[in-house]
Amino acid sequence: MSGNGNAAATAEENSPKMRVIRVGTRKSQLARIQTDSVVATLKASYPGLQFEIIAMSTTGDKILDTALSKIGEKSLFTKELEHALEKNEVDLVVHSLKDLPTVLPPGFTIGAICKRENPHDAVVFHPKFVGKTLETLPEKSVVGTSSLRRAAQLQRKFPHLEFRSIRGNLNTRLRKLDEQQEFSAIILATAGLQRMGWHNRVGQILHPEECMYAVGQGALGVEVRAKDQDILDLVGVLHDPETLLRCIAERAFLRHLEGGCSVPVAVHTAMKDGQLYLTGGVWSLDGSDSIQETMQATIHVPAQHEDGPEDDPQLVGITARNIPRGPQLAAQNLGISLANLLLSKGAKNILDVARQLNDAH
């Protein structure tokens, strides 16, 4: 009898209710805020589980004197976190989706994509230029951005401005803007500013005609071990179906173009009346040469937790077992079709030249 009692006690200790789920994140304040929001949602869904947040620095956090596009290494903000995932030191990792490459290392998958916040870019102005827009900034004003995508589009749109690289986390960039006289304004992701509670610093939100956004911008991705079915089931509740389908289309477009950090590629997606609209573009580094096109596809946005595919093969690095396969494939095909259209119009040449120029500098 006593033996059975011990077995029952052991089973209770090993039951999922007692389990601590370890969540990996970057150390920056924004990353911690984003991770806290994901953990809060998981806690609400699984009140019996405990969650421990483990923060670590990544290569991208450490190399702050070089433009991201020049470092010449993929997975700048993800490699150390993936290493911890691989060694079973954490069970899942919360990322900004735009930091996750469209091809993940073997053994990993994006197990959830959370509801997207505003994906557009924002302009934050130096205190002396508050009330201005990019259009009304004085001639030769210097605007800071760490992104080739932003610089290429904005140089084309605002030729009277000069664009220079600015690195560091959000706090560091804002301090550089406010305390030094080098920059009249800087460009940042609206979602990051909003998550930090800095709505009052948003001086201008850039519309798609001015600057399309990065693939996955404004959404959070939760990376897990691809074979860890328990954790895949656990994080599945975080999937937002519309965000998922938009981001599958965007990531398929980028992957098929073979774009990345070192080339200016941008997108804009919208879901309306059962249609998914995808606009994508590529630019030369100075913005003088560009190709942009829009395509659409009829896609039914499923309700969360309709029964999805059981075999769960990944699409552009994403596993969404609780979302039907048909809409996911339709979104992926839309991204591939748009990429093929741009490639047929000469996108590869623009991107190759951009890559060579970026590598040469």
Rank of each mutant, 00 (worst) to 15 (best):
V38G: 02
K43G: 09
A44Q: 10
Y46A: 07
P47T: 11
G48E: 13
L49A: 14
Q50V: 02
E52P: 07
E52N: 04
I53W: 06
I54R: 08
K62R: 08
I63E: 01
T66R: 09
K70T: 07
I71M: 14
G72L: 07
K74S: 05
K74R: 05
S75A: 13
K79V: 06
K79Q: 10
E80C: 11
L81C: 08
E82Q: 06
A84V: 09
A84W: 06
E86I: 13
K87Y: 15
V93R: 11
V94M: 00
T102P: 10
L104F: 10
G107K: 07
G107A: 09
I110E: 04
I113G: 02
I113E: 00
R116K: 03
A122D: 04
V124I: 11
F125H: 03
K128V: 07
F129L: 12
G131Q: 14
E135M: 14
K140H: 08
T145F: 10
S146P: 04
S147P: 00
L148T: 05
R149M: 00
R149W: 03
R149H: 06
R150K: 03
A152P: 07
Q153V: 06
L154D: 05
E162N: 05
E162Y: 15
E162P: 00
F163Q: 10
R164L: 11
T172A: 13
L177G: 01
L177Y: 00
E179G: 08
Q180M: 10
I187S: 07
I187P: 02
I187R: 02
A191Q: 00
G192A: 06
Q194L: 09
N200Y: 10
R201P: 04
G203H: 00
L206K: 02
L206P: 05
E209I: 04
C211M: 15
Y213G: 09
V215C: 15
L220R: 03
G221Y: 05
V222P: 00
V224W: 03
Q229L: 09
D230A: 05
D230R: 13
I231H: 01
I231A: 15
L232E: 04
L232D: 05
L234H: 08
L234Q: 09
V235L: 10
V237H: 00
L238C: 04
L238W: 03
E242L: 11
T243V: 01
L244S: 12
L244H: 03
L245A: 14
A249G: 02
A249R: 02
E250K: 04
F253A: 03
R255M: 13
G259C: 10
V265A: 12
V265H: 00
A270D: 12
Y277D: 06
T279Y: 12
G280I: 00
V282I: 06
S290A: 01
T294F: 09
M295F: 07
M295N: 01
P302M: 13
A303S: 10
Q304D: 01
P309E: 03
P309S: 09
Q314A: 04
L315I: 01
V316Y: 02
A320V: 11
R325D: 12
R325P: 14
G326R: 06
Q332I: 00
Q332K: 15
N333H: 14
G335Y: 00
I336V: 05
S337C: 13
S337L: 15
L338P: 10
L341R: 08
L341T: 14
K348Y: 02
N349L: 13
L351C: 15
D359C: 14
D359E: 12
A360Q: 02
